[in-house]
Design a protein around this nucleic acid. Structure first.
Lengths: 329, 329
DNA sequence: CCTCAATGTGGAACCGGTTACACCTTTAAA
DNA sequence: TTTAAAGGTGTAACCGGTTCCACATTGAGG
């Protein structure tokens, strides 16, 4: 690889001048610039970002930490972040945390060691030293963090909507699936649903789950119908388990939505392709990713506008695992 | 952030000694080592990877370029790569190429500028200067590249299997969906299926598709049944379009697999949760990712074992969108 | 006691950029 | 014609590590 000194020599100028040409800073005579540009072309020179980053103590890298890219909700987020960053010439160092604090800490540490200028993280523990002691901006994505920059959807409200719609559509033996205890958004949804169900005085059952994995989703679904065979409405903790519940319901010969209604959460791409297609509480994942990226870039450029949180709306996405309401309400 | 010089001063030694302690190279007296380690702890020192990378011209970073993380096949690959790399203390710079050569080139360039020690790429154009002129190892993933290190599944064989099984299960009005022209594996699958169908003298129709996107998949599915309403077997180009075809078939009141059989490709996690669950040609995506990462690390450590290609087996994964065969064969 | 290898440590160059500063030339205003 | 500001360029220090090399000390073997 050619270095800036090679270019300088080839063009018959100093490295400072070459640097000025590359960065369009300071004064450079038109003729000189031409010479340098020619030299750059001839030597196929591209600046070494590492050297640059070392001196400026700033790179064009940001860190992205997500729980598990294999969960179909996160690729949407990731893609949103990536597209926005790519358009602004930032690159992404990526890691899966598995909702595991040790892994999180390791990743954040290596991000910092690599001079990232900012971090986007999906964590349940924004209030640990890992994040509090950082001196680069962090945006929390899909997770709340009081008074810290974050982009998230209103899980609680989503849970409430799900419960309301379930009731409005006539289910009276509702089962709420409680997502993993350590995952905040899952608990918010659960709480939202429970709030409404309690207030309305509708009895309900709870199935506890401890992960969002595909393999286990089937297990929770089986458990659900074994323990509550007469349930006529399931509020699932996300679309993966909703899909598993739908699958199991149909396997048991139940009619959906006639016998059981199902409402999921997230609106992952495949939800609309299921049969019957899945009614769900939609989160605008891709847009959330983009918003997080935009916010992070603002923070990078402009330190003062801190503690800005962006709450994205969740929307009831009515499809075919719920019955129609006769009257609007 | 503390620097190595801060540590040296704090411990009363030279930077060279601190460096020796960190890297466990050369001779360091036990007592000295203790002092340095204490200083490191007290100052919360972590070495700056950027400075390290600059001098050694080697980082602990690798580049990963995939077409689109939003396509559920790729997160599995990515996760395999990531897990293997994480265990070996490498980090990943990630990019989506959208099968677009310009984007690919941009990413590869920035990867190199950031001193990555290797690249894993999923590209249809391994034989361009972009890749040929690189002086760091590249592993092609999910794509073939004659005589270059690569990890891929036998798409052609997969297509053949799909056709054989379809025939064995009695479909005689088969429709083959041809994936996007510019995506190599899609064409391999298509060719494999066509080879068998032609040789066996079974007439078939072709539906051309130009993307793997969820939104468009529905369109191809509709088109398929409009143009070939009496088709009794669909070989889809991947599980996404297979899912769309299944959805459309059911919507039209067709019985699956009685009226139409469907075989997908990839075996994405949701395939087994569809109803009926999707018969498909499975690629071991996660393992492919891990294998690619392992191969890349071998190449990084040991330049000579070049042009090694790993072909992973595809397996017919029989589920419920195909009928049972009375007799094995 | 001498010699040489093994052990232990520090100074300084180096990686490839950026930029402060010094210095020279040109241009325009007084 | 003088002078200050603007334009143009190079030298060298600097970012934070790693490593070569020089040099000192210790200990074992002859």
């Amino acid at each position: 690889m050619a270095t800036i000194r090679d270019v300088a020599k080839h063009a018959g100028v100093s490295v400072a001048t070459v640097s000025r040409v590359i960065n369009e800073t300071g004064y450079v005579h038109e003729d000189t610039r031409k010479k340098v540009e020619t030299a750059i072309k001839e030597l196929h020179y591209t600046p070494n970002e590492v050297a640059r980053s070392l001196y400026k103590r700033k790179s064009r890298l940001i860190g992205l930490l997500l729980p598990d890219i294999t969960n179909p909700f996160f690729p949407e987020l990731a893609r949103g972040v990536e597209d926005e960053m790519q358009e602004n010439d930032f690159r992404i160092i990526f890691g899966n945390s598995d909702e595991n604090m040790k892994k999180e800490k390791e990743y954040i540490q290596t991000f910092v060691q690599n001079n990232v200028v900012g971090v986007i993280a999906s964590t349940n523990h924004p209030d640990t030293d890992t994040y509090r002691k950082m001196n680069i901006p962090v945006v929390f994505l899909d997770r709340t963090a009081d008074n810290r920059p974050s982009v998230f959807a209103d899980g609680r409200e989503g849970g409430r909507i799900a419960a309301h719609e379930m009731i409005a559509r006539g289910s009276r033996q509702i089962t709420v699936m409680q997502g993993p205890k350590h995952i905040r958004p899952a608990q918010d949804r659960y709480q939202g649903a429970v709030d409404v169900l309690s207030k309305e005085g509708i009895p309900f059952n709870v199935i506890m789950t401890s992960s969002f994995s595909f393999t286990e989703a089937g297990t929770w679904a089986k458990e659900l119908f074994e323990q509550h065979p007469y349930t006529d409405g399931v509020i699932a903790s996300n679309d993966i388990v909703a899909t598993a519940v739908l699958h199991e319901a149909l396997r048991l010969g139940k009619k959906v939505p006639e016998d059981v209604q199902i409402i999921g959460f997230d609106d992952i791409p495949l939800s609309s392709l299921l049969t019957p297609s899945l009614t769900t509480i939609r989160q605008p994942a891709y847009d959330m990713g983009r918003a997080a990226a935009q916010l992070l870039m603002q923070l990078i450029e402009n330190e003062n506008i801190d503690h800005k949180t962006i709450q994205m709306p969740v929307t009831f996405t009515e499809r075919d695992t719920t019955r129609k309401v006769d009257q609007h309400g």
